[in-house]
Every structure is written in structure tokens, then in C-alpha cells.
């Protein structure tokens, strides 16, 4: 399991299982991630998709951007449906009704669908030990319905339901729920975080999550141009800055062992990440300092270098 399945860009399959012609906004981060995760899975896969942008933009009837079997299910139960499919595949295999080859089960849901609405279904599926890969596409709000805050929205972000005002000048006043840690605490064999700017890291983690026996959880930071108030061409750059500033920690937890997989040699100040995004435009200097402090503390825990004093 330690060898990387994809060592260079040239190892990534050309085949698209999430096809062009989908109707995501220009520069949608979610769709970059989905393309590569499906390339890691190959054709023998069944996808379960909770309600959210990905479902809506991929399936306006009678079109589908899915070149593999795909179920759209409710917001609450993607992990429960994936559990059922995995259990059914097991029985069909045992009864020799299908060939013995491995059919992957992959779940896609947004941060709203994972941190809030599908949370208990996912916790149950992980606890029962179903063999599937759950992917949370984290764009840090309920984007499909018009940018409402979720429990995965970070402190200080503007959303339509966390508008900065007199009483709550920072906008979102609560802190982002740490989903990867929560799911790692379930003791499942594989948990990882990734983001679209580092496609090889992402695709290798998807592959590992698919191959491991038992449940795997992959948390992907996927910038959203309209929701984060960034120009579409900056989506990958923001994703990269998220990592370089320590806002996104990119790691994997394999059998309980945590390892950073993308480790910036020097850390940039969080302002570089924040100032690119309209959703943070209102933040006061004190708010930025608070975010910097929190990021510094978290990075220290993960063994990342301190911020350079020069800034």
C-alpha cells in the first residue's frame, strides 16, 4: 500500500468518467476533484451522490455527466445507501451472481451533506465498517441553494446567512467543524485530506481509500468561485494558498498514524489566502490576527514550521 499508484501526471488515465458537458459554474473546484477521484476508481464503480451542487450540475434530465453507475439520493442518507449497495454486492458475490472482481462504492457529498445533514448516516456507516470511500467536497457552505453557512464554514467568512453586521462583525462567528479528526476518531483504516491544487496527492489518496479494506474518508477542499467571491481563474491558486498558509492541512491517517503529505517548507501569512477572497473582505485586523493565531497553533501541533518573523 505504500507505493504511490500515480507517480507523475502522465500516470493519470486520460479516460473521463465524469464527462464534459456538465453545468457547473466556470472554474468549479468540485468538478476538478471528481474527475480525478473517478480516474482513480476506473470503470468498476458505483457512485452515490447526496443532493448538492455536484448532483444538480451533473444531471439535468435527460443528460448525465456520469459515465459510471450513479445514484442521486437524499441529503441525509448517502452513506446509508452506500452501505446498502456494499452489503448487496457482498451477497451477490457470495451467491456467485456476479463475478468476483472488486466493484468500488464511492459516496460524494458536500460539506453541508457531511458536516450537518448526512452526519449521522456517515458515522453509522463508518462504525459498521462498510467497505466504501466517502468523499466530502468541502466548499465551506451550502452553495447549491445560494451560499448558506454550514458547520464547515470557517470563522470570519461571509455567507448569505452569516452576513457581517453590527452584532456579528466577522460574519461567521463559530469555528469550522474538524470533520477529518472526527472521522479519524471512528478508528477507520484510512482518513485523508486533499485539495485540487495538488492533483497527484489527491488521486493517490483516492486510490488508497478505494483499496483499503473497510471504510475510507477523503476530505477535499474545493474552492467555489461564486461562493468564495473569487475570479474563476484563481480557483486553483486559492487552493494552493490554502495549503501554503496552513489554512488547509494536507495529511493522511493510515491505521491511526498521521502523516503530512504536502508540507510547505515556509508558511505564508494567512492574509495572502484571505485577501484573495471577497468572502473575507470585511475582516478587521484583529480578526485576521485571531485567524493567524489559530492557524499557528494548529500548524504547531502538526509539526509545520512557524510563520517567518519577517512578515
Amino acid at each position: 500500500m505504500s507505493a504511490q499508484a500515480f507517480r507523475s501526471i502522465k500516470d493519470i488515465p486520460l479516460e473521463e468518467y465524469f464527462t464534459p458537458g456538465h453545468r457547473a459554474c466556470q472554474g468549479c473546484g468540485e468538478t476538478i476533484a471528481v474527475r480525478h477521484i473517478l480516474k482513480a476508481a476506473g470503470p468498476d464503480v458505483i457512485v452515490v451522490n447526496a443532493t448538492g451542487c455536484l448532483e444538480v450540475i451533473s444531471s439535468p434530465y435527460p443528460y448525465t455527466a456520469w459515465a459510471v453507475p450513479w445514484y442521486h439520493v437524499a441529503f441525509e442518507n448517502a452513506a446509508a445507501v452506500a452501505s446498502g449497495i456494499e452489503a448487496a454486492l457482498k451477497v451477490l458475490t457470495r451467491k456467485n451472481l456476479i463475478s468476483g472482481k472488486k466493484i468500488h462504492v464511492v459516496c460524494f457529498a458536500g460539506d453541508g451533506g457531511t458536516a450537518d445533514i448526512g452526519f449521522q448516516a456517515l458515522s453509522g456507516a463508518l462504525e459498521r465498517g462498510h467497505d466504501f470511500l466517502y468523499v466530502c467536497l468541502d466548499n465551506e457552505a451550502y452553495m447549491n441553494t445560494g451560499i448558506q453557512r454550514s458547520s464547515s464554514t470557517p470563522y470570519g467568512a461571509w455567507t448569505t446567512t452569516s452576513p457581517p453586521g453590527k452584532v456579528k462583525p466577522a460574519g461567521q462567528m463559530t469555528y469550522k467543524k474538524d470533520l477529518p479528526s472526527i472521522f479519524a476518531a471512528h478508528g477507520i483504516p484510512y482518513v485523508a485530506t486533499a485539495t485540487v491544487a495538488y492533483p497527484l496527492d489527491l488521486i493517490n489518496k483516492a486510490k488508497k481509500g478505494l483499496e483499503v479494506e473497510g471504510p475510507a474518508y477523503l476530505h477535499v477542499y474545493t474552492p467555489c468561485s461564486p461562493g468564495w467571491r473569487i475570479p474563476s481563474e484563481k480557483v486553483v491558486q486559492v487552493s494552493r494558498l490554502g495549503v501554503q498558509t496552513g489554512m488547509f492541512l494536507i495529511y493522511e491517517v493510515e491505521n491511526g498514524q498521521l502523516r503530512l503529505t504536502v508540507k510547505p517548507s515556509r508558511r505564508k501569512p494567512v492574509t495572502e489566502y484571505l485577501k484573495m477572497q471577497g468572502r473575507f473582505r470585511h475582516l478587521s485586523d484583529e480578526d485576521v490576527e485571531r485567524i493567524q493565531r489559530l492557524v499557528d497553533e494548529r500548524c504547531a501541533k502538526f509539526g509545520l514550521p512557524p510563520l517567518e518573523a519577517s512578515t
Binding site: 468518467y17 456538465h22 453545468r23 451533473s58 435527460p62 443528460y63 448525465t64 455527466a65 459515465a67
Partner: peptide, 18 residues
């Protein structure tokens, strides 16, 4: 159930107009 029988049929759709 609104099943779509052609995998990847979105390829017929022109998103160049965006």
C-alpha cells in the same frame, strides 16, 4: 425513477456558450 440510460450523455451538451 428518471433513469438515464446513456452514460455520459452530457457530452452532447454544449457548454461553450458559458
Amino acid at each position: 425513477a428518471g433513469i438515464i440510460f446513456v452514460p455520459g450523455s452530457a457530452k452532447e451538451y454544449n457548454t461553450g456558450a458559458f
